[in-house]
Amino acid sequence: MSNEFVARSLEEVRFWSRIMKEHSLFLKLGFRCEDTQLIQEANQFYSIFEQIEGKAHSFTEAADPAQIQRFNLEVHAAATHIWAFKRKVLGLIIQCKLPGGNNFPLLVDHTSREANYFRNRLEELNGGRLDPLPDAIIHENVFFLRIMADHAKFIGHLLDPSERQLVEQARNFSHDFDQLLFQAIDLSGMRPQSQTEPLLGQFLDQNRVSVASLRDFKKTARDLIEACRIKSIIHPLLADHVFREAERFLFIIDAFEGALTGKQAGA
């Protein structure tokens, strides 16, 4: 355990606890008014992750690593519980037990994948286990490319159909990121032969360009929604939420490229 462990743990928890908190709100907004038990559970998760987020910001990088390890276990339990809640909700929707609700099955599945990612990250940090760089690059990109493709689909479905140009742009992003995801899955299937620095470097460069373009589209959509300049049923917080996740993916891509570059420089 070290200061690096503390810094990385706090950074992950601060980011993802806010995401989990917001998921709770979005799910609640999609329930029917008669779904009082589900609404209550969503409110409880909102409160839990709001407290976790606040606690994470109260720590500094000088905190005792053992204390942060215990905190990660606490957060892991909360992430596991909200993952189970999301999977329960998904089952209810797919079995047509919540007719008339406004939560897309893919959106609920999407949020559960993010909860599972979060708890896996906490397990890796507490166990001192991290994938070797080539594996990590491919795994993270497969995960986030699918997240980005989902976002484009959600935006396209939540914009008013009369916003034809924006809807078409969202559909194009959905198609582009589906293709990037398939390419990433192909690269993963070719491992370990595909794990060369030139191929991984090109992989990151290509994804960065596309993610930056989607990030800019999300920022424009967010700003237009906040200014009430377009027609949609997208909550302003959801628009900012998906923008922040694109920013997160760009941060991860840059970190991976820096690690690759450093390895090449030291060779």
Rank of each mutant, 00 (worst) to 15 (best):
F5D: 06
F5M: 07
R8M: 02
E11V: 08
V13R: 03
S17L: 03
R18Y: 05
M20Q: 05
K21F: 07
F26I: 10
L29N: 13
G30R: 05
G30F: 03
D35L: 06
D35H: 01
I39Y: 00
A42L: 07
N43D: 13
Y46A: 09
I48V: 11
Q51S: 12
Q51H: 05
I52D: 00
K55V: 00
K55M: 11
A56T: 06
H57C: 07
H57Y: 08
S58A: 14
D64K: 07
D64E: 14
Q67G: 09
Q67A: 14
L73T: 13
A84Y: 01
F85T: 04
K88M: 06
G91K: 09
L92C: 06
Q95G: 02
G101F: 00
N102Q: 13
N102S: 12
N103K: 03
P105R: 06
P105H: 08
L106M: 14
L107C: 03
D109Y: 09
R113P: 02
E114V: 02
E114I: 01
A115T: 04
F118I: 10
R119D: 02
L125M: 12
L125S: 09
R129P: 03
N141Y: 12
H151M: 07
K153M: 01
L159E: 06
V167I: 13
S174Q: 10
H175G: 05
D176W: 01
F177D: 07
L181H: 14
I185Y: 00
D186I: 09
L187Q: 05
G189F: 00
S194Y: 10
L199N: 12
G201K: 07
L204C: 15
L204W: 11
R208L: 15
S210P: 10
R215Q: 14
D216C: 02
T220R: 14
A221G: 05
I225K: 04
E226N: 04
C228S: 13
I234C: 00
H235I: 08
A239L: 03
H241D: 05
H241Q: 02
V242W: 08
V242H: 06
R244H: 10
R248I: 01
I252W: 08
F256Q: 15
T261E: 15
A265Q: 15
G266Q: 13
G266E: 14
A267E: 15
